[in-house]
Design a protein around this nucleic acid. Structure first.
Length: 592
RNA sequence: GAUCCCAUAGCUCAACUGGAUAGAGCAUCAGCCUUCUAAGCUGAGGGUUGCAGGUUCGAGUCCUGCUGGGAUCGCCA
């Protein structure tokens, strides 16, 4: 149960009553009325902006309206007092049992606390990672992978029907280039050419991918096919099979990496399959029938004309009709379809499968691509489809503040595999969520393993482990007590009287609305900050017992108060576990 | 030249999508361990939210224009 949502609906009912009684004009829009925690603890339990938001539409002064509402709120269930403050805020006091009720909810629902039906089962398609199958996954992919995976879990928790999807770019020039590079490495594996030959080809730009990661792929090809491809010189004959071999091999590695990162996709969609089944042509025909394509010549980009630029007629999409700056090419001057054409077909395919609510997680280097895909989606759905693109900024990998660039495996960048091997999946996942995705992120090997408050993943886990530690002690101190969640729910929670205990109760009640807001805003990082704050409050309460021993959770001579406090400790642990579950991170029982 | 993102305490970042006196950590200073984990906690100082306008009851948040940083810019994906 979300107390803030419940009180909002009761407030709406009060306002409705006032409208019906003619004390307020009928038909007021209540959407902007909010019920939130107050800024400071002394201001009461809840605060609402109703009087300020409704001042203009009612034509009443905020203070006058606030007085009217304060009067009307007095009879509302759980409200013990209400008062006006500041420019027209209404602060509301609630029956203390309401907050204790939140803790009972936590104990009853466990990690499911915070689940909601906000999404109403609406299908959402979330596409993430979608790394080209041309090499190992690196840190940038890791951020997108975690962001997408956790956003998907978060949306599911908020009641959406989520489909997690990976788009394999297994068509087009890039994969052909990898095939060419693989052929060089293959010839090297056969002993026909040397490492120097490969490097020479790289320098002359005859091949684009030369990383040593292709050596095992070449060995695998040799093992499977022997020297079968060494004598085949017609590219049309060797490119397709070598390309398919590489894609398959790379996708196997990608799937292994994702699995070890705890990332799972429901659907893998292939660009090649879209081309081969005619879906790209279908999509282009759809746009042509709508009169949204034409053959034309694009202007060169201003200020930065490529040296080899020359005007050429191409098939173009009228993206400018949907808010883009220029019309975008669907076919290269050679007549071959562009990546954009495939992507249109892919998004049309998503729409045809019943998704109107789409989310894509991309790297920031794709920022210039957002408008055209959104334009295409509008064209495909008559404006009904929604596409939210979340761009992930760069990840800088550091070690004690020093940039880390080299990877043992890939040569030029830090791979996802390196990260997992170095610090473990759970740490990688959590740290990736400690910034909003449109801000750059520093990933410092030393910092993320540090055991201090500076390291959020440690700090949150430590709070959880401390809570478990209390229970280990409680089991010996009160061997007769029922310390199960159901047993703790029977404790006399009115014994939680200290101001910080009550504050913690309130904060636990904030979890459902935090989850909901984070889900709707597509901002999973908010959960990381909530957990950090919760951990902070918990550590603070813990240490309050240093000075005031009567505030320690366990009181050997007072089982009743001990059980009430254990219920609170357990509630904190369960909410942390709830958050970590969304993050795909396992809460720790102890830190040793 | 254009588009997108960013700019908040000395440093790294929050701020519940327009609310009350802008909050944390680090660093600095002053305190707390015969103790359920001191791997922690308490307190103090530290701000013209890059600049200039605008919108309104109210702006770090929205709009316009600057400045600085990053990303991208037909026939790559």
């Amino acid at each position: 149960m979300n107390i803030f949502a419940v009180m909002k609906s009761r407030l709406d009912a009060v306002l409705g009553g006032l409208m019906a009684a003619g004390k307020l004009p009928p038909g007021l829009d209540l959407a902007r009325v909010s019920v939130e925690p107050p800024r400071e603890a002394g201001m009461g339990d809840l605060t609402t902006n109703a009087a300020m938001v409704l001042a203009k539409p009612t034509g009443m002064a905020p203070k006058v309206l606030a007085e009217l509402l304060v009067e009307a709120l007095k009879g509302v269930e759980d409200v013990t007092a209400a008062s006006t403050a500041g420019p027209g805020f209404i602060n509301i006091q609630l029956n203390a049992a309401v907050w204790r009720g939140a803790l009972l909810d936590v104990l009853k629902e466990g990690r499911a606390y915070g689940d909601s039906t906000t999404g109403a089962g609406e299908p959402v398609n979330i596409e993430y990672v979608s790394a080209n199958p041309t090499g190992p996954m690196h840190v940038g992919h890791a951020r997108g992978a975690v962001m997408g995976d956790v956003l998907a879990r978060l949306l599911a928790k908020a009641g959406f029907a989520v489909t997690k999807e990976y788009y394999i770019n297994d068509a087009g020039g890039q994969v052909d280039n990898v095939a060419a590079a693989l052929r060089m490495r293959y010839l090297q594996a056969l002993g026909r050419i040397s490492e120097a030959d490969v490097q020479g080809a790289l320098e002359r730009k005859e091949i684009q991918y030369g990383g040593a990661y292709l050596l095992p792929v070449a060995e695998a090809l040799k093992t499977r096919d022997g020297d079968k491809w060494a004598e085949v010189n017609d590219p049309a004959a060797w490119i397709p099979p070598l390309r398919d071999f590489t894609v398959e091999y790379m996708m196997k590695l990608v799937r292994e990496d994702l699995k070890d990162l705890g990332v799972h996709h429901d659907v893998f969609s292939s660009e090649k399959a879209l081309v081969e089944t005619g879906k790209v042509d279908d999509a282009l025909k759809f746009l042509a029938d709508a009169g949204l394509t034409y053959t034309g010549v694009l202007e060169p980009p201003k200020g930065k004309t490529p040296d080899d630029w020359e005007p050429r007629p191409q098939l173009l999409f009228k993206a400018t009709q949907f808010g883009d700056e220029v019309d975008r090419p669907l076919k290269k001057s050679s007549g071959v379809g562009t990546y954009f054409a495939s992507d249109i077909a892919y998004h049309k395919d998503k729409v045809d499968r019943g998704f109107k609510n789409l989310v894509n997680i991309w790297g920031a280097d794709h920022g210039g691509y957002v408008k055209r895909v959104q334009a295409a989606l509008k064209a495909l759905t008559n404006g009904e489809g929604k596409l939210d693109v979340q761009l992930c900024q760069m990840v800088r990998v550091l070690n004690n503040g020093e940039p880390v660039k080299m990877s043992k495996r890939a040569g030029t960048f830090v791979t996802l595999r390196d990260l997992i091997d170095e610090v473990g999946k759970d740490v990688v996942r959590f740290i990736m969520l400690t910034r909003k995705n449109d801000a750059p992120l520093d990933f410092d090997y030393a910092k993320v393993m540090e055991k201090s408050r500076e390291n959020p993943v440690f700090y949150v886990q430590y709070a959880h482990a401390r809570g478990r530690s209390v229970f280990r002690h409680a089991a010996t101190m009160f061997p007769q007590a029922d310390l199960s969640d159901a047993g703790l729910a029977k404790a006399d929670l009115s014994r939680l009287a200290d101001v910080d205990e009550v504050a913690l109760l309130r904060f636990l009640a904030n979890w459902p609305r935090t989850v909901e807001a984070a889900a709707l805003a597509h901002e999973p990082h908010r959960l990381a900050f909530y957990m950090y704050e919760l951990a902070s409050q918990f550590h603070g309460l813990w240490n309050k017992g240093n000075d005031a021993t009567e505030l320690r959770f366990l009181q050997a001579d007072d089982a009743a108060v001990s059980l009430a406090r254990l219920a609170l400790v357990r509630g904190v642990g369960l909410v942390i576990a709830s958050g970590l579950t969304v993050f795909g991170v396992e809460p720790l029982e102890e830190m040793r």
